[in-house]
Design a protein around this nucleic acid. Structure first.
Length: 670
DNA sequence: CGAAAATGGATAGCTATAGC
DNA sequence: GCTATAGCTATCCATTTTCG
C-alpha cells in the first residue's frame, strides 16, 4: 500500500504540473520562489517514479483487486459465516496458497498471443512494464496459450528469493526485496540490457496463481484447482497449493496452521520446467496464506466488494502493531454524561510519534475487548493518526489477571455515577456542565473560550449554563489564570457576537442529544425560533421527521431547559439563506481533505455552501468532488488523508488540487 | 524577550439511532 | 442489510497570547 507521505507528495506533483503549465502559458499564479519551495517538498525518487507511472498507464480488462486480510480465528469466523450465509453450503472446498510478497503482475493475451504485462497499480489502471519483463525475465513468460480466443489475463507475483536478495544486498543497499522489485521493474532504465536495474530484475522469479477470461472453452469458469492445473499445462510456474474441505472456521484455522508448518518441507519449481531448478518455499518471501474458495459457482455467488473479492481472504502470519502494556484505565466524561474509558499504556513510538493513551470508545467496548491492567496489547495508528488497540495478547497473562470491574474501577477514581438504562453514566454535574460549555464554544467558534478558561469559569460557579456566558465582563475574566486584558476583551466581544448567530447553529450549540448540523437544519425549518422551540410540545408529531427517539429526547430537553430558553428568547438570531437551491453547485456533494494554502477550510466550505453545494465529512456514493489541499500540517504529518484519497480514486471522483479548486470556483461564480 | 500555555484544526473508528 | 448522522475518542503542530 502506498503510504500517506507518498500520496501527499503525489498531490504536490499535481500542483507542480499545474503551476508549470501556467508558467509556460505566461500566467504564473505563484512566484518562482514559491514554486521552488513546492518542488523541494517532493523527493527526487518519488517524482521520478511517478513520471514513469504516468508514461505507461494501461487499464486492466478485469479489475485487479486486493485481498481482505485476516489475522485471527475471529476474522476467519466472519469469512466462513459470510460464505455459508450466501452459498448455503455446509461443506466448503477451499484452496490454500502461500501469499508471496512481491509485486502483482497481470499478463494479457489476445487470441492466445502474449500482448502486455502490467503492474497492479490502483487495481483499475496499472503500469505497462512489458519490455522490462520480456527483456529481463522472459523464461517465465509463455508467449502463447492454447485454445484461448479473445482476451485472457494471467496473473502472478514477481519476487526475489531470500538467497538472491542477500547476494544483491552485498552490492547495493535495498531495504527489502519487494521494494527492490517494484523499483527496478518500473524504472525506465530496466529495459536497457546492461543497466543496474535490469541486472537486478534478472534475479527475479514469477509464480502465477490466476487466469481470467470471458471465453472459457466449456462455457464455464474453471475451479481454483483447475486454474492452477491450466497454468501448469500452459507452461506457467503455478503457485504451490493445497486443497481441503472445511465445515467451520476452526477447521479452516487448523488447516492453515498445518499448511504453515508443512511449508518449509515443500519445494516449488520456480525456475520453470525447462531448467528444472527449484527452491524451498521457505526461501520465497511470503507473509501468509491465501484462502480461496474452489468452486466457480460459489465464487460467482459471493462476488466482490469494491475493494476485495468476497470469496478469498489473506491470512497473514504477522499482525501489524507494536507491543506494549496497559498501565491504567481512566475515564472521561462527555457532555451527555456518557463515560469513555481510556487506556494509559507504556509509551511506544509508532511512525515517529509517541503514543501514551488509547481510547476504548465506551464501556461496552471495554467489556467486549476485555482488556485488563498489565495486559500486553498490540497498538496501531488507525489511518496513521488515531491510536487503537488491535489485539489483547491474552496468552501472555499470568494467573492473577482479572477482568476490569467497571463499577469498582469508576468508584475508585472518585467518580459519581448512576446506572441508567443498563449502563453507567456520570452524575458529575460540574464535569458535564464543563463539556456542555465547551461544545457551545466550539460550535459557535467563540475564539479564546477554550477548555482551560471554561474549567475555571465552571469551577467557581461563574458559569452554570450557556446563558451565563453573556453576563461575563472583561474585568471579571482577567482574574483567571493565563487571561490578560487583551484576551479578556476578545473573549467577551466574541461571546457577544454570537447573539446574532444563525439560529440553526445555535440549536446545534445547545447540544440537544442527537441533534447535530444536519438534524438542526431540518428541525429549524419547522421550528424557526426560540419561542417555537419553547412551545414544542404543542407541535404536530415529529416522529416521522426526526424519528421517535430523537423526538422524545428533544421533548425532554425542552422541558428541562424552559428557563434557559426564556433567557434566550430575546436574542436576535438570523436565518440561514434558504435560497441555496438556486446556486450553481446545487446538488453536488464535496469532500475536503488536507490543508489549503490560500484559504481556510472554513472559508472554502462557506464558499461552496454559498453556491448551493453540500459539504460532507466522509466520502459516499453521493460525493462528486474531492478537494485536496497539499499543504502539510507539519514536516512529519502530511496534509491529505490517505483513506479519502484512495477511496476517491476508487469511486472515480473528480479530484481537484488547490489550484484546480480555485479555478473551478471562479468558473462557477460566473 | 524568550519560555510556557492555550487553542484550533485535521484525522479514523467505534456505537447508537434512523431511514430506506 | 446498507448508508448516513451524531458524539465520543488521541495526537500532532502552528499560531497567538501571557508569564516570568
Amino acid at each position: 500500500m502506498t503510504n500517506k507521505k507518498e500520496l501527499n507528495e503525489m498531490v504536490l506533483l499535481k500542483e507542480i504540473e499545474y503551476n508549470n503549465k501556467l508558467y509556460h502559458k505566461g500566467q504564473p499564479e505563484i512566484s518562482d520562489a514559491e514554486f521552488d519551495a513546492l518542488a523541494k517538498n517532493v523527493s527526487e525518487k518519488l517524482s521520478f517514479e511517478n513520471v514513469a507511472e504516468l508514461k505507461n498507464p494501461q487499464t486492466h480488462h478485469f479489475p485487479m483487486l486486493s485481498l481482505a486480510k485476516a489475522y485471527t480465528l475471529e476474522d476467519l469466523t466472519k469469512f466462513i459465516k459470510q460464505v455459508k450465509n450466501q452459498t448455503d453450503e455446509d461443506i466448503i472446498e477451499v484452496v490454500l496458497e502461500p501469499k508471496i510478497d512481491g509485486i502483482g503482475l497481470n499478463c494479457c493475451y489476445v487470441d492466445g498471443v502474449f500482448v502486455s504485462a502490467l503492474t497492479r497499480g490502483d487495481g483499475v489502471v496499472g503500469e505497462n512494464i512489458t519490455e522490462m519483463i520480456k527483456q529481463c525475465i522472459p523464461k517465465y513468460l509463455p508467449l502463447q496459450i492454447k485454445d484461448a480466443p479473445g482476451v485472457w489475463e494471467v496473473r502472478g507475483e514477481v519476487f526475489i528469493t531470500h538467497k538472491k536478495f542477500e547476494q544483491i544486498r552485498k552490492q547495493e543497499s535495498y531495504s527489502n526485496s519487494r521494494n527492490t522489485i517494484a523499483g527496478c521493474a518500473r524504472s525506465p532504465k530496466a529495459s536497457a540490457t546492461h543497466s543496474k536495474q535490469g541486472a537486478q530484475l534478472k534475479h527475479a522469479s514469477i509464480v502465477f496463481y490466476e487466469v481470467l477470461s470471458q471465453n472459457w472453452p466449456q462455457g464455464a469458469e474453471l475451479t481454483t484447482t483447475e486454474k492452477l492445473a491450466w497454468l501448469k499445462k500452459n507452461n506457467f510456474t503455478a503457485n504451490f497449493s493445497h486443497k481441503n474441505t472445511v465445515t467451520n472456521a476452526e477447521e479452516l484455522h487448523h488447516t492453515i496452521q498445518g499448511f504453515k508448518n508443512q511449508l518449509k518441507y515443500f519445494v516449488c519449481e520456480i525456475e520453470n520446467n525447462s531448467q528444472g531448478a527449484s527452491a524451498h518455499l521457505s526461501n520465497i518471501p511470503q507473509d501468509g496464506v491465501v484462502v480461496k474458495l474452489n468452486t466457480a459457482n460459489s465464487k460467482k455467488i459471493l462476488g466482490c466488494t469494491a475493494k476485495y473479492p468476497k470469496w478469498a481472504v489473506a491470512f497473514k502470519w504477522n499482525e501489524p502493531g507494536v507491543k506494549t502494556t496497559v498501565e491504567r484505565i481512566s475515564y472521561t466524561i462527555g457532555r451527555t454524561g456518557g463515560i469513555t474509558p481510556v487506556a494509559k499504556i507504556a509509551p511506544v513510538i509508532i511512525d515517529g510519534t509517541k503514543i501514551n493513551k488509547v481510547t476504548l470508545n465506551n464501556l461496552n467496548y471495554l467489556k467486549k475487548l476485555d482488556v485488563r491492567l498489565k495486559d500486553s496489547v498490540l497498538v496501531i495508528k488507525a489511518g496513521q493518526i488515531i491510536p487503537q488497540i488491535l489485539k489483547v495478547l491474552t496468552h501472555e497473562r499470568d494467573g492473577s489477571s482479572q477482568p476490569v470491574d467497571i463499577q469498582k474501577s469508576l468508584l475508585q477514581q472518585n467518580m459519581s455515577i448512576a446506572f441508567v438504562n443498563g449502563e453507567w453514566v456520570s452524575t458529575d454535574c460540574e464535569a458535564i456542565q464543563e463539556q456542555k460549555i465547551r461544545h457551545y464554544a466550539k460550535t459557535l467558534k467563540i475564539v479564546g473560550l477554550g477548555p482551560a478558561l471554561i474549567k475555571q469559569l465552571v469551577g467557581d460557579g461563574s458559569v452554570t449554563n450557556a446563558f451565563d456566558l453573556y453576563n461575563l465582563t472583561p474585568d471579571q475574566l482577567v482574574k483567571y489564570i493565563n487571561i490578560g486584558p487583551k484576551t479578556a476583551l476578545q473573549v467577551v466581544s466574541n461571546i457577544q457576537k454570537t447573539r446574532s448567530c444563525a439560529f440553526q447553529k445555535w440549536v446545534v450549540a445547545c447540544g440537544i442529544p442527537n441533534i447535530g448540523p444536519q438534524t438542526a437544519k431540518i428541525l429549524t425549518h419547522y421550528i424557526p425560533s426560540v419561542e417555537a422551540l419553547l412551545n414544542f410540545q404543542n407541535q404536530p408529531p415529529f416522529d416521522a421527521i426526526l424519528g421517535n427517539v430523537t423526538t422524545q429526547q428533544l421533548l425532554s430537553w425542552v422541558l428541562a431547559n424552559q428557563q434557559l430558553l426564556e433567557n434566550f428568547k430575546h436574542f436576535t438570531f438570523t436565518q440561514l439563506d434558504q435560497l441555496q437551491s438556486e446556486g450553481s453547485l446545487y446538488g453536488y456533494h464535496f469532500v475536503i481533505t488536507g490543508r489549503f494554502k490560500t484559504l481556510k477550510r472554513k472559508q472554502l466550505e462557506t464558499q461552496i455552501e454559498g453556491l448551493g453545494g453540500t459539504i460532507q465529512a466522509k466520502i459516499n456514493k453521493k460525493t462528486r468532488y474531492l478537494l485536496v489541499g497539499a499543504l502539510a500540517h507539519s514536516p512529519k504529518a502530511s496534509g491529505a488523508s490517505e483513506s479519502k484519497l484512495s477511496r476517491g480514486k476508487l469511486l472515480e471522483l473528480q479530484i481537484l488540487t488547490e489550484a484546480e479548486t480555485l479555478d473551478f470556483l471562479t468558473q462557477k461564480n460566473n
